[in-house]
Design a protein around this nucleic acid. Structure first.
Length: 471
RNA sequence: GGUCCCUUCGUCUAGUGGCCUAGGACGCUGCCCUUUCACGGCAGAAACACGGGUUCGAGUCCCGUAGGGAUCACCA
């Protein structure tokens, strides 16, 4: 049926040699958005043809990263290694067609040829056996299979991001497509898999741009239609240098642990290299509707934590109290040392929005949230302690007495009580509010003080005030 | 070194030959709001890498230079 044939099929094809880093995450996001935009399919393929470097831990980390970012793929993740037989079959077909040939060169010969080519300022093409008869090879000698690249003319690819890019065919090397042990190389495997999986659009890092020409020739040799290519620029570190494991390249789970929200991450990554006019805050739904390869930038982008923080703050603020609580629950309970009681939960639900207003990363919320828990005596920050020096404890004791007389524990009443107290003591309002804030929050940030007192409850408020005298 | 790609405020970017006295966002500075810190509001400093063309007119097109990057494995 034509109708159930998706018009757009994209894929994300990471090699499982490490975690899902930020560049990979963005590549995955763009592929995902493109597929969702067109109502097509987004496939996941693990490029594990290099068994020596691939690990199951890495596969798990990548899958976990994708799930955390909420990028769902269609169908099961495909193992490239599991398709080796099919790849070898294509290699043999190419051989039969005369589009590939056997290479009996030893690694020493290859290295020597490579060094010579480089020394003469030329290009190594690996073609030692291109024009030799295989009968010249020793009986039973191992051989790899190399593709026979055209030597005349040029190859042009129309990249959706980079535009038309042309390279002279004389620069193309007769790369190995099947190793002497019979396993396929990446160069062959990608092409065969993308073709077999019906991939229509390949979005990947521009470190693959040079490979595109080489792979293009496999499509040509097989008579297959090449997919649309989009090579997106790489992401650099804050200092403009390339991201590497030693240099700021973190797995997405590291961002999760730092307290970034998946939605913020997606929004940030989306804008890092793609734009839609002046829009900055873009929901995932909106992104799906707007996403297009045409608006992907060509220049490499630097990763900027300040902007990510700003965006993250926005998404934290938009979380509802219940979601917020469930996100911080674990860490908060660890911090206060006990399972949250119902009364504490109730306070948190009321108090969390004000904290979210002030947060950039989730730990900002968690740290301040302990103020709504039963932890007495409350630990004081340096500034809070300073604000409570001298005769402040005594003053707080008086405030406590004043608040104890309040029969209707409600913000307006509490406020009136504090106001009249300040007036009676002939103190400026700030002179009372400031120490009360310090005493009750211990220096933690929160919103309106009086409202905070209301949420905290009369008993806890007075207790915290009197703890000062006791201490 | 060969090949290929890239280049607008500090950063992410808008800009597809006249709408650009180059716009937005983050960050930064100042002010306002204010019971802390934020949020929010207002104002401000801040960029077309350089040099040649093409054109009546160039950030936008072409060439060169410089700078940055990618790649050159029986890795992916």
């Amino acid at each position: 049926m034509q109708t159930d044939m998706p018009t757009v099929v994209t894929r994300f094809a990471p090699s499982p040699t490490g975690f899902l880093h930020i560049g990979g995450a963005r590549t995955a996001l763009y592929n995902w958005l493109l597929a969702r935009h067109f109502g097509g399919k987004f496939l996941l393929r693990i490029e594990d043809t290099d068994k020596k470097r691939s690990t199951n831990e890495a596969i798990d980390a990548i899958l976990e990263g994708m799930k955390w970012l909420e990028l769902d793929w269609d169908g099961d993740a495909i193992s490239q290694a599991g398709r080796a037989e099919r790849h070898a079959e294509i290699a043999r077909e190419l051989l039969e067609k005369g589009k590939a040939y056997k290479c009996f060169a030893t690694s020493e010969e290859l290295t020597a040829a490579r060094d010579a080519a480089r020394a003469s300022g030329g290009n190594f093409r690996g073609d030692l056996w291109r024009d030799r008869d295989e009968g010249e090879a020793p009986e039973g000698a191992p051989y790899s299979i190399r593709i026979r690249m055209p030597r005349e003319g040029e190859t042009t690819i129309s990249d959706a991001v980079q535009g038309k890019v042309t390279v002279q065919n004389s620069n193309l090397d007769d790369m190995i497509i099947l190793r002497s042990d019979g396993t396929p190389t990446y160069m062959l495997a990608v092409v065969v898999d993308d073709h077999d999986m019906g991939v229509t659009h390949i979005v990947r890092g521009d470190d693959h741009l040079n490979n595109a020409f080489r792979q293009h020739q496999i499509y040509e040799a097989m008579g297959w239609t090449p997919p649309v290519l989009a090579h997106i620029p790489l992401i650099h570190g804050p200092d403009g240098k390339k991201l590497s494991k030693r240099h700021g390249a973190l797995g997405v789970e590291a961002y999760r642990d730092m307290g970034y929200l998946p939605a913020a991450m997606r929004n940030y990554l989306l804008r890092l290299g793609w734009s839609h006019g002046d829009d900055e805050i873009i929901s995932t739904e909106q992104a799906i509707e707007w996403f297009s390869l045409e608006n992907v930038g060509k220049g490499a982008a630097r990763f900027d934590f300040d902007k990510l923080d700003n965006l993250n703050g926005h998404y934290i603020r938009n979380l509802n109290p219940d979601a917020l609580l469930s996100l911080i629950r674990n860490d908060l309970e660890k911090e206060v040392g006990h399972t949250l009681e119902t009364a504490e939960e109730e306070r948190l639900i009321k108090g969390l929005p004000a904290l979210a207003e002030r947060a950039k990363r989730m730990p900002d919320v968690t740290e301040n949230a302990s103020l709504f828990c039963n932890v007495r005596p409350l630990s004081l920050t340096e500034n809070a302690a300073k604000a409570l020096q001298g005769d402040m404890p005594a003053l707080m004791g008086k405030v406590a007495n004043e608040l104890e007389a309040v029969t209707d524990w409600e913000a307006s009443v509490i406020k009136a009580a504090i106001f009249s107290f300040a007036e009676a003591e002939e103190l400026k309002l700030g002179k009372v509010m400031q120490p009360v804030r310090a005493a009750v929050t211990g220096g933690r940030q929160c919103g309106d003080l009086v409202e905070t007192l209301e949420i905290l409850g009369q008993e806890e408020t007075i207790g915290r005030l009197r703890d000062l005298i006791a201490a």
